[in-house]
Design a protein around this nucleic acid. Structure first.
Lengths: 118, 118
DNA sequence: CAGTATCCAAAGGGATACTG
DNA sequence: CAGTATCCCTTTGGATACTG
């Protein structure tokens, strides 16, 4: 089931479909970063995420959060404060992305080193 | 350094930057799938990748392969056959994405189950 | 604070045809 | 086979202003 195993083509087709299923939900310029922000802080408000994710606009953040909620990766809680604050958290299902986030964090650090050294 | 640790904000900012560094190179509708195709088969030709990645056009594949090559994740080899064939492989640096690909494969399978069961 | 609405520019990306 | 070129529609997304 791992990368670079040498079996018949059928197994690889399943793997390709699996990766593409993941990307259907996660692809896009912002989604992984948004999930990471919520994941790192555990709970996070709209304006906080807006600050964490470099370059995103409120319009895009709003759209992406909605999609992530539809896909059951995050849950949205309106807090009864004045003015209203809204808290985003990963669902149990969303939390299963933790390993991937951590790997992407490590890889990002390594990649930056690689780019700088050249 | 892990997700959900509770330290001061500075550490999380570094993590956010690292994730975003990764996404600068990997985001887009096709990149991860292309890398996966090459990774699963170790060596892969243009037309093979075109077949593996559901829905991609030759125009897009060409563009994305170029970017991945610029970012030193894949290398391109022209084979002296008639007609010409071209082989793509992951570079050493590209191979460090293996863990992430494998995780995305597993997650994709789990995610599909999750979606179907509801 | 947490969004939504509108307008508009730029990038993405499909279809088709063509080349070495 | 492995791309490139062109045309043109679609999606993305910034700027700005507004609402409960």
């Amino acid at each position: 089931m791992k990368c670079q195993t040498k079996d018949f083509g059928q197994e690889h087709k399943k793997e390709m479909r699996a990766v593409q299923d993941s990307m259907d939900v996660l692809s896009g310029k912002w989604k992984i970063s948004i999930i990471s922000s919520i994941c790192f802080y555990n709970k996070r408000r709209f304006s906080d995420i807006l600050n964490d994710v470099a370059g995103i606009s409120n319009r895009m953040l709003s759209k992406e959060l909605k999609e992530l909620e539809i896909n059951k990766l995050i849950k949205r809680t309106v807090l009864d404060t004045q003015p209203v604050t809204v808290q985003y958290q990963l669902t149990e299902h969303g939390l299963t992305l933790k390993t991937i986030i951590d790997n992407l964090t490590e890889w990002g650090i390594a990649h930056r080193k690689k780019i700088i050294e050249k």
